[in-house]
């Protein structure tokens, strides 16, 4: 783990411990989803594994009481920090009526929960970027001091919506953070087939905003970059493009077989940098985490995931006829 001392970043030992706890919770929820999927109990999983450090590092640098989040489908770490619970995540895994994201209408990973300012998203990638610029524009118009963070994969940065949103934010100096989680692949397509340049962050110059690339396996480095970007937003200095470098540890989703486009060795090698292990080792070095504390954490999280799974699995689906609800406003919108 990089030398950055958490104290010099203004973080307490409790805060870094909770950082680790969130990362671990995200990982354990994700691992459970895969088990449930392979056992035929949930139809689909799309995974955060390998990106927890980036997600939790970013979330901790934001104000979860007022900032807006437009996550993408891997962002279990981000949404957990913004207030979505393990149980709610399981409700979406099982597509139950009580799934706060969509009542079981959308696939897992399509987050949205207004009370926590997690903005509803769709499947077509990158559509959320212009929305983020729009929310940031509203903040500016209404003279509100909140920050908007929007995340996406490096492949998704190839869409026209990326350019249009970044350009708009640059022109209007909007308080928005474009947070690109570069995990080296877009399904099977590697970064070099996605972009002619090495880093997505290089594009920032063209939009008149700073662009940085940070180690996505180091939550402290990500925290630092996002904190700086958020401060810029709050000071009226405009948008930032941040790219985190990590590795997608699982196949693209439960429907993908990654053996046709990457080797087991490559995946195993990347797992050597798994932030769950490296950050845990770092915290032990610092004396923040001990063997017993780690065990306690693991048990606590297992309990949370067990309960969430059980409650969600026994919860009901939405009634079939509710398919017809909410095409338009329930009141006044009757046709």
């Amino acid at each position: 783990m990089a030398s950055a001392n958490y104290e010099t970043l203004g973080l307490s030992s409790d805060q870094v411990l909770s950082m680790y706890e969130s990362m671990l919770l995200a990982r354990k929820i994700d691992e459970r989803m895969w088990l449930l999927n392979r056992a035929g109990r949930i139809p689909f999983v799309v995974s955060c594994q390998g990106q927890e450090a980036a997600q939790v590092g970013a979330a901790m640098a934001l104000n979860t009481e007022e900032d807006y989040l437009l996550p993408y489908y891997r962002d279990v770490g981000l949404v957990l920090h913004f207030g979505m619970t393990a149980q709610e995540l399981m409700m979406q895994g099982f597509a139950r009526a009580d799934d706060p994201n969509s009542g079981g209408r959308q696939m897992p990973g399509h987050f949205g929960q207004k009370k926590n300012r997690i903005v509803t998203g769709s499947s077509p990638v990158t559509t959320q970027l212009p929305h983020a610029a729009g929310i940031a524009l509203a903040a500016k118009m209404e003279k509100k001091n909140f920050v908007t963070l929007v995340s996406f994969g490096e492949g998704s940065a190839s869409q026209g919506d990326f350019h249009e949103a970044a350009n708009f934010a640059g022109v209007h100096n909007l308080p928005v953070i474009f947070f690109c989680e570069n995990n080296k692949y877009a399904i099977s397509v590697p970064m070099e087939k996605q972009s002619g340049s090495e880093h997505i962050s290089e594009r920032a110059a063209g939009y008149g905003m700073p662009g940085v690339t940070v180690d996505g396996n180091n939550p402290l480095a990500v925290y630092e970059a996002v904190k700086k970007a958020a401060d810029r937003c709050r000071n009226g200095e405009g948008p930032t493009l941040i790219e985190t470098l990590s590795y997608r540890q699982t196949p693209h989703s439960s429907d993908d077989d990654d053996s046709s486009y990457r080797t087991k060795e490559e995946v195993e090698e990347a797992k050597q940098n798994d932030s769950i292990h490296t950050f845990s080792a770092y915290l032990r070095e610092c004396g923040v985490l001990t063997e017993t504390k780690e065990k306690e954490l693991q048990e606590k999280i297992k309990g949370i995931v067990d309960d969430a799974t059980e409650t969600a699995e026994s919860a009901p689906y939405a009634d079939p006829e509710t398919t017809l609800n909410y095409v338009y406003a329930p009141k006044g919108g009757d046709l």
């Binding site: 009526a97 079981g104 209408r105 696939m107 689906y317 079939p320 006829e321 398919t323 095409v327």
Partner: peptide, 15 residues
């Protein structure tokens, strides 16, 4: 039906 698209939950998908 005239809803935006087909939901995920099996109950609604079947409907």
């Amino acid at each position: 039906p005239d809803t935006p698209a087909m939901p995920f939950a099996p109950t609604m998908e079947k409907y």
